[in-house]
Simulated assay, not measured.
Amino acid sequence: MSLSPRIHLHDGDLPDGLDLGSVVAVDTEAMGLNPHRDRLCLVQLSAGDGQAHLVQIRSERLGGRGADSPNLKALLSDPAVTKLMHFARFDVALLQHALGITVGPTICTKIAARLVRTFTSYHGLAHLCRELLGVELAKQQQTSDWGARTLSREQLNYAASDVLHLHALWDKLEALLVREDRREIAQACFDFLSARARLDILGYEDPDIFSHRA
């Protein structure tokens, strides 16, 4: 289903033969922030070409296919395709838990921002897009009901906006990482994200096994 020249909604899976290139921006929407409790509802993807592909994940109770998404799973687990995300720790954990795959390789613009923009505590996507790209992202739909059988045009426009600018944002942040000689340590963080997400799913957020607490 095409909503506009730049937003395409797919029911349950990506279409056969869709090529999104070697670096794909990815984001998710769920019923909440607990991957154990809150189901995955939407996966947004963009090749950085101004178009967004939104895959609505509906449970069988809502007439959907559940986690039967072979094309989406193949893309997210393809080692030849880098998944570009903002706050990848959450998205990777949610996708791995909901779809039963290992997501990688990944790049996280939030980690990149925290490594090089140490002069500020503002590392949210909307703030970074405003500061680095001059782009304003509307956030009114952030806490809306993503589990509805039919999503509104406002929800879909909001969801698309979260991936449409990630390539440009990464270009800015990667240049800063190189300038500050932190590109290598950033990559080490990115490479650990799949394991960190698995630890989160296993419940090792608290206690944090990296903490010095007894």
Rank of each mutant, 00 (worst) to 15 (best):
A126R: 14
H127E: 14
H127R: 12
H127D: 13
H127I: 10
C129D: 06
C129S: 11
C129G: 10
R130W: 10
R130T: 07
R130F: 06
E131F: 04
E131I: 06
E131H: 10
E131C: 06
L132F: 14
L133V: 04
G134H: 13
G134F: 13
V135T: 08
V135S: 08
V135A: 06
E136G: 02
E136H: 12
L137N: 03
L137W: 05
L137D: 03
A138S: 12
A138T: 08
A138N: 13
A138L: 08
A138D: 15
A138E: 13
A138K: 09
K139W: 09
Q140P: 03
Q140R: 12
Q140C: 01
Q140W: 03
Q140M: 03
Q141M: 11
Q142C: 09
T143H: 09
T143A: 14
T143E: 07
T143P: 00
S144Y: 03
D145R: 10
W146Q: 00
W146Y: 05
W146P: 00
W146S: 00
G147V: 04
G147Y: 01
R149F: 00
R149V: 12
T150F: 09
T150Q: 13
L151W: 00
R153G: 00
E154T: 12
E154K: 09
L156I: 03
L156T: 01
Y158H: 04
Y158A: 01
Y158R: 00
A159L: 01
A160E: 00
A160F: 01
A160T: 01
A160H: 01
A160P: 01
A160L: 04
S161F: 03
S161L: 02
S161C: 04
D162A: 05
V163C: 10
V163S: 03
H165Q: 12
H165A: 05
L166E: 05
H167T: 11
H167N: 10
H167Q: 12
A168F: 06
L169P: 06
W170I: 09
W170Y: 13
D171L: 13
D171E: 15
K172Y: 06
L173Q: 05
L173N: 06
E174R: 14
E174N: 15
E174G: 06
A175C: 09
L176P: 02
L176R: 14
L176T: 02
L176H: 09
V178Y: 07
V178I: 15
R179G: 06
R179Q: 15
R179F: 08
E180Y: 15
E180L: 11
E180P: 07
R182I: 00
R182W: 02
R182E: 07
R182T: 01
R183W: 07
R183P: 02
R183Y: 04
